[in-house]
Design a binder for these strands. Structure first.
Lengths: 228, 228
DNA sequence: TATTGTAAAATTGGATACAATATCCAGCAA
DNA sequence: TTGCTGGATATTGTATCCAATTTTACAATA
């Protein structure tokens, strides 16, 4: 019975076409290749991927459930664009969820986890491109949360991160935020090392709130500019 | 631009076949007509609904993203059955999320909301069938959370509730739990009326935890029984 | 000229049919 | 009994066709 579990990951790689299409589209949206508000035409995408329209449509359903696109019947699928308020809501959800994950994770965090997290922070220090820095940023958080051993919770956090990631990239251009964020990360990591759950939770909560504030303020300003 | 928003809800009613199929399947799963572990055959369902396989497959993708089913490539879709641990995880997620919703909702709760909530509790008192009682149970919670004005958060809570609902029904057969739960609901409602945010949050947190404990204990026992 | 009405084109939604692939199971050999 | 090898079954993916809807273009009218 143990061998079966070793084979399962291999079996999982037998990805079906709709899954591959969904992954490609998800990457495209996250990397900014496909922008918010853009309409996705089935035939065009099917031709681009070299598949028929059916797998594309199935991929659409999956991405809609993830919140990345919105299907308008008979009018096509559009990449969902979030308002400042909606982004704020996502951060309000992330806060309690991520602290929950951290709370569960801290008792399980090992020296290896701390090493990995510290290495990611060092890499992020040297990173300049905002895209890569954003990835490392999330890798750091995910490294901590993974120790919680709560796959479903982690999945929800990944999904939430994906939804705000595109917008967060707009803010990351400012170097001051990156340095500030890095300092907060180091303080958080130190608290985790000392197994100071409440302190770590407080730091994380403030860290997420700060990021949310920064981003929503930016978006509100952008929305104000559009209105004129 | 305001008129467009008035038309949008109308457009939303143009439900497409995959959505209708997904709703039907979701209802079937939630009502227990389709049981956990059961495999869903595309052709069979397509024939039953009088549609082709394409809408059925799209509905599968949607339900998989909601966590209600799991698609095994080339082997069919099966209604996901949760282990005691997975149910526990879902309750661990619900706790902080529902308290967050309540915290945001309390300042906005009006007399009308309190009346509606109280009426639901009275109905639940007279209700005997566990299925209907479960619905009223959730209606009570949803009434409070709706005032938070956070649609995405509410959507996530609905989804989480749907995932554990099937299993919760197993526990609801015991009348003692219903009475205990109703008492907690009344205390919670009173705290909300007095705008006692922290007290209400504490009550809700304990209420959810108690429900989770009850259910996971039941499931663990059932799993133990199966193992023999 | 601006607005309204209508027709055609484009796109999506869905059904049917067919080919390809993977899984499952029964039968057969060792 | 164990392991392998087929075929049967079911799922997956594609192609083709048609219907429904939206959008665009164009003509008609005030």
């Amino acid at each position: 019975m143990e061998l079966q579990e070793l084979v399962l990951p291999e079996l999982k790689n037998f990805k079906t076409t709709p899954t591959l299409v969904a992954e490609a589209l998800r990457n495209g949206i996250l990397k900014g290749v496909i922008r918010a508000g853009q309409t996705l035409r089935q035939e065009e995408l099917a031709a681009a991927f070299g598949v028929s329209r059916i797998p594309v449509r199935e991929a659409f359903r999956q991405l809609e459930a993830e919140g990345l696109i919105k299907i308008h019947p008979h009018r096509g699928a559009v990449v969902s664009s979030l308002s400042a308020f909606e982004v704020q809501e996502l951060f309000e959800i992330r806060g309690p969820l991520e602290t929950t994950a951290l709370r569960l994770a801290i008792p399980n965090l090992t020296g290896l986890d701390f090493q990995k997290a510290a290495r990611i922070l060092d890499l992020a220090d040297r990173e300049e491109t905002s895209s890569r820095w954003g990835e490392l940023n999330w890798d750091f958080h995910a490294t901590l949360y993974a120790a919680a051993g709560r796959p479903r919770l982690l999945g929800m956090l990944v999904n939430l991160e994906q939804n705000v990631d595109r917008y967060m990239r707009l803010v990351l251009t400012g170097l001051d935020y990156q340095q500030h964020s890095q300092a907060e990360h180091r303080a958080l990591l130190a608290a985790c090392r000392e197994k100071g759950v409440e302190k770590a939770v407080t730091l994380l909560s403030g860290h997420i709130e700060a990021a949310g504030q920064k981003l929503t303020a930016y978006l509100r300003q952008a929305e104000e500019g559009e209105r004129q």
